[in-house]
Design a protein around this nucleic acid. Structure first.
Length: 425
RNA sequence: GGAGACGUAUCGAAGUGGUCAUAACGGGGCUGACUCGAAAUCAGUUAGGGAGCAAUCCCCCGCGAGUUCGAAUCUCGCCGUCUCCGCCA
């Protein structure tokens, strides 16, 4: 959520910023300012009525005690009571209206976010690793998975539906090994491991920005719970409605979770393999930081995410998303894209964002620099560290051999207990 | 799922219709005095949100409704915690 004060003070700036996201929010800006003005007007009036009411409430028992007449004052009180009730109703209506509009505003892109209309104007920041030249025809991971008997979407389609997978045997073990490797690596970098609930309430989904705008993207239970689309949601909301002591910052968490996405609007895209699933595994990095350091922390976060790909020897690149491509809540985002031979291009495997105070304001996550200072909003950041299913896919494809076997990356061998995956496994 | 108890500041806790919300009392934290220093002791100080240039005012006793001139206090709903029972991994 944006700060209403920012809109009040710089309406034109906000309008312009929204346009860099291809969003014309002009009428929303005007409307919210109008509501805001009206709201404050009524509130000021109402407050002085309440003051009168409060003062009278103190006098009444005194007058009664002294045996005085309170009928006149009671009559006035009855009058005031009604007016206050009406005003309160109008105010809460305006409040709700204003909040609804405020929830529609995406974050303002940071000045270093490249201006661009869509993903074609993203900017490559750096590349890591050599793209492998195969001296045979490399297979796509879905074919490798089928040939090795380790990935089974057909049975998942029967048991559940499309865009789900069974992992079997060493395939399941590989996925689990990757999760452990990611968590262990991030723990070494100073992140505290969290295993969160995979179902959250509406307030949490609203806190991180998934709701109210993107409700159709989420899986929902019959009692208004939501299956998490990412561990970002439960982990960020751990500190919802809290004031954190300044010396505790930065707080760094890494969390494995299954992630659930309805993928509304993505029908027909990436229908084969592990790339786009309704349920997938991910290790997420989440940080709560002092606003002054948040852009440094974003750089570090991105490097921490890159680290696991480097240790796995997977070629990848880092891309700064343009203003037209960054997510709703983000001010700046780096995507990390891994080389995927079947796509013959880099494919997103991590998204590292600085949300600045956008989530913190929604979720009310604040900190005090020291005992004396006022509470202020933290900056929240998160990034995949990294998507597990896509890592499995990337390993199968990049580490495949001509005989159909897969060489296990060095760092995973201690988790899996073998250096090669063959059909007979 | 059933029964009961409870939810007040940083923590414990008092307050059961009015002058009780910075909100008794106690602990913790911070500042100062004493001290070579520390401990002990003493004194002071220790939420948040909103409106306003300011003075100041309003809101805030888990959340939301209601009764009342007036609600932390009474009523209803929801959420949460604890205890017992049932069930279960």
């Amino acid at each position: 959520m944006l700060d209403i004060k920012v809109i009040r003070e710089n309406p034109e700036k906000v309008k312009a910023a929204m346009k860099t996201r291809n969003k014309d929010m002009d009428s929303f800006v005007d409307e919210v300012l109008e509501i805001d003005k009206k709201r404050r007007e009524i509130m000021t009036k109402n407050d002085s009525l309440k003051q009168e009411q409060n003062q009278a409430s103190k006098k009444i028992p005194q007058i009664k005690k002294e045996g005085g007449d309170i009928s006149e004052i009671m009559q006035r009180m009855n009058e005031i009571k009604e007016i206050i009730k009406e005003n309160d109703a109008v105010i809460s209506e305006l409040d709700a209206k204003q909040k609804n509009i405020m929830y529609e505003f995406p974050n303002i892109p940071h000045e270093t976010t490249p201006i661009g209309k869509d993903d074609s104007e993203n900017v490559e920041i750096r590349k890591w690793g050599e793209v492998r030249n195969f001296d045979f025809e490399p297979k796509a991971h879905w074919d490798i998975g089928a040939d090795l008997g380790i990935l089974d979407p057909e049975t998942a389609a029967k048991v559940t539906g499309t865009r789900f997978h069974f992992y079997k045997g060493i395939g399941a073990k590989l996925e689990r090994a990757i999760i452990s490797f990611f968590l262990d690596t991030h723990a070494e970098s100073g992140y505290t491991e969290i295993l969160p609930p995979f179902i959250v309430n509406r307030a949490s989904m609203t806190g991180t920005g998934q709701l109210p705008k993107f409700e159709e993207d989420a899986f929902k239970t019959n009692n208004d719970f939501f299956l998490i689309p990412t561990a970002e949601v439960p982990v960020t909301n751990m500190h919802r409605d809290e004031i954190i002591e300044g010396n505790k910052l930065p707080i760094k968490y890494c969390a494995y979770s299954a992630c659930f996405r309805a993928e509304a609007g993505s029908a027909g895209r990436d229908t084969r393999g592990l790339i786009r699933q309704h349920q997938f595994n991910k290790v997420e990095l989440v940080k709560f930081v002092d606003p002054e350091t948040s852009y440094d922390e974003l750089e570090k976060l991105t490097l921490d995410a890159q680290k696991v790909l480097q240790l796995l020897g997977l070629p990848h690149r880092v891309v700064a998303l343009s203003s037209g491509d960054i997510g709703f809540s983000s001010a700046k985002t780096y995507d990390i894209e891994v080389w995927m031979p079947s796509y013959n291009r880099y494919v997103e495997i991590s998204s590292c964002s600085n949300f600045e105070d956008f989530q913190a304001r929604r979720a009310s996550i604040r900190f005090k620099k020291d005992a004396k200072s006022k509470a202020q909003l933290v900056h929240t950041l998160n990034g995949s560290g990294v998507a597990v299913g896509r890592t499995t896919a990337a390993i199968l494809e990049n580490y495949q051999n001509e005989d159909g076997s897969i060489t296990v990356p060095e760092v995973l061998r201690k988790y899996i207990g073998t250096d090669i995956i063959k059909p007979e496994n």
